[in-house]
Structures are given as structure tokens and as C-alpha cells.
Computed example of a mutant assay.
Amino acid sequence: MEAQHTALPPKPGEPITGHSLQTFFPGYFALVMATGIVSVGAFLYNMKQVANILLCANVIFYIVLWAVLIFRAIKYPTDVWKDISSSSRGVTFLTIVAANNVLGNQFALMTSYKDVAIFLWEFGIVLWVMITYTFFIVITAKEPKQGVEASLSGAWLLIVVATESVAVLGAIIAGEMVHKDVTIFISFCAFLIGAMHYMVFISLIIYRWLFISMKAELLTPPYWINMGAVAITTLAGSRLLMYSHNHEWISGISYFLPGLTVFFWAFATWWIPILFLLPVWRHIIQKVPVKYDPQYWSLVFPAGMYAVATFNFSKALDLPFILPISNIFIYFSITAWVIVFAGMLREFIRFLHSEKSL
């Protein structure tokens, strides 16, 4: 009788390979998040060919990852449940929500298929409710708990990213909806919920950084979501402001939206020097090797999100002098996407060779 092996969640700082179906990393939907936001950024800067190529690629990535997720759930339900009930790995399922809504952004902004964008927004709300509440309830009820040091990372801010992705896409497609007020109200509530979650979880993360031993191996790429989560909150505020310029309901509350949006953009910008300098300490001084890890898509997404958020922020508040910052980050995010994608292809080719040699 064939022995059954159970995949365990990786230890803190351990690279996530996800080579086999059984151990496949549930946060791989960050590939769709990163590809989608870089595509949107390229579109905003009139790099139409790049934007369209990435849109086509993203549709393929989205379909393939859903197929892998469903097949894995059917073949290895125990391992999927272990991932869901892991405080370090379960939160990465929220990349599904964000990926779905970022793809919706691409369809809403770059194509004439507005119905697809509307469907993805509605589907995204269902996914958000299912995954968010499942995660919170399961982790709350689980005993024994892993503790802050073992489980808390930048990936927990995917709670914010997923919530704000609902707000961003809702604000974009609200004008196409029959019930516009309902759509924008849901988006505004998602914006506030995401902002509240950011305040809570970033406080815990900063506490973890400053007062608990933080080895170089633990400073993994998801900590870029420290910035990415507040960047997407900035984008949500900017999109709501753009909507409020022409719609009466939300214009009544738009008097405090500019201040909130500036607050979030300023905090996103504050993170950038830290996030660039810490990898220098990690890889050059502490000599942690650089090798492909699917978590690197969690670096590409915040970089692209900051570029897109800053672009929209400058337009919504008429601040043209900050636009050059977005110009820099759009090229940085495209470069980062190419490097990480090349690393993914190289890893995939190595995996195929190793399978043939068995």
C-alpha cells in the first residue's frame, strides 16, 4: 500500500518552492496580482503593447492557477486544509481575491468588456467573504496557536490588500452599474475596513520587527506588502475621489477623503527607503543567497501598485509635481517583473529536467 505523506507549512524564513501539486504554494496568485498591476501601469503610461501582452498572459495565469487550486483541493484536501488552518500560510489564500480584482481592473480600464469586470467584482466580493471569514474564524478557534514570531509576517497585510481591491474595482465600475449608489457605498465601506485593518496589523508587524529577534532569513519579500497594502489604500481613496467629482452621494463625504488619501500615500512613501535598504543588509552583509521564490511576486506587486497609486493620486488631487515618482516606479516594477518571471521560468525548466531524470 502506498504511503501517504503530509506536506507541512514551511518554517519561518524557509524558501517556498511549491514544486509539487501537494505542496503548491497557495499564495501563487500573487503572480496574477503582480502581472495585472504592472499591466495597468504600462497602460496608464501609454505602453499599450506591453499592457496588452501582460493582459493576455494574466488571463492564462489566472485560469491555470484556478485549475491547479481546484485539482489540488480534490487530490490533496488534507494538505489544503492544513494550509488554510496555518496562521502563516492560510492568509496567502487572500491573493486569490486580490488577483481576481486586479484582473477586473485590467478588463475595466483596458478593454470594452465591462461585463467581465463587473462579474469579477461581484465574484471578488463572494471570494472576499468566504476566505476572510474562514481565515479569521479558523485561526481564532485553532489551538495551540503558533504565536507572533512564528506566524506574523507582511503576508498578513494581504487582508488589507484583498479588502482594498474590492474598493478599487468597485469605484472603477460603479458608473456602469444599475445601482451606482450601492456599488460605491460597498466600495467606500471596503476602503474604510481595509484602512482599519492596516492600522491594526502594521502596528503588530512593526512591534515584531523592533522588539522580537529578526534574523535576516526572516525578512522575506512579503514584507514589501507593508508598503503595497497602504499603496492600494491610496489607490482606493484616489479612485473614490475621482468618482466623487461627478456624483452627488459620495461628494458629501469627500471633504475628508483627500486628507486620508494623502495620509496613506505619505506612509507608503515612508516605507520605501527601508524596503530598499533592508535587502542590502540581508543579501550583501548577512549573505543570504538570492534565489527564485514565488514570494518574490509579493515584491513586484507593491512596486507596481505604488506606481499606479501615485499616478492616480497625482491626478485625483491635482499634484503634478509627484508624478515623476510614479515614472520611476513604473520602470522599476516592469524590470522587477521581468527578473522574477525569468527566475520562475528557470525554476520551472529545472523542475522539468529533474522530473525527466527520475
Rank of each mutant, 00 (worst) to 15 (best):
S86Q: 08
S87A: 15
S88E: 09
S88P: 06
S88C: 07
R89D: 06
V91L: 06
T92A: 09
F93N: 08
L94K: 02
T95V: 09
I96L: 12
V97D: 08
A98Y: 06
N100H: 14
N101G: 06
V102W: 10
G104E: 10
Q106D: 13
Q106N: 14
A108P: 07
A108T: 10
L109S: 06
M110Q: 15
Y113I: 12
K114T: 15
K114G: 13
V116T: 15
L120D: 01
L120T: 02
W121I: 03
E122C: 00
E122K: 02
E122L: 01
G124P: 01
G124R: 02
I125Y: 00
V126E: 03
L127N: 10
L127P: 06
W128P: 07
T132C: 11
Y133G: 00
T134M: 14
T134V: 13
F136T: 15
F136N: 14
F136Q: 14
I137M: 04
I137N: 03
V138W: 05
T140H: 12
A141L: 14
A141Q: 12
A141M: 13
K142H: 02
P144R: 10
K145F: 10
G147H: 10
V148W: 11
V148N: 13
V148F: 12
V148I: 15
E149F: 11
E149I: 13
S151N: 09
S151Q: 08
S151R: 08
L152S: 13
L152H: 11
L152E: 13
S153I: 03
A155K: 03
A155G: 14
W156D: 04
L157C: 05
L158C: 06
V160E: 04
V160A: 03
V160Y: 04
V161D: 00
V161Y: 00
V161E: 00
V161C: 00
V161Q: 00
T163C: 06
T163F: 06
S165A: 07
S165I: 04
V166W: 07
V168H: 08
L169G: 02
L169A: 02
A171Q: 05
A171H: 04
I172T: 01
I173P: 00
I173N: 01
A174S: 11
A174V: 11
G175E: 03
E176W: 01
M177K: 09
V178W: 00
H179L: 09
D181W: 09
V182H: 08
T183L: 05
T183K: 04
F188Y: 14
C189T: 12
A190I: 02
F191R: 00
L192H: 03
L192P: 00
G194V: 08
G194I: 08
G194W: 07
M196H: 10
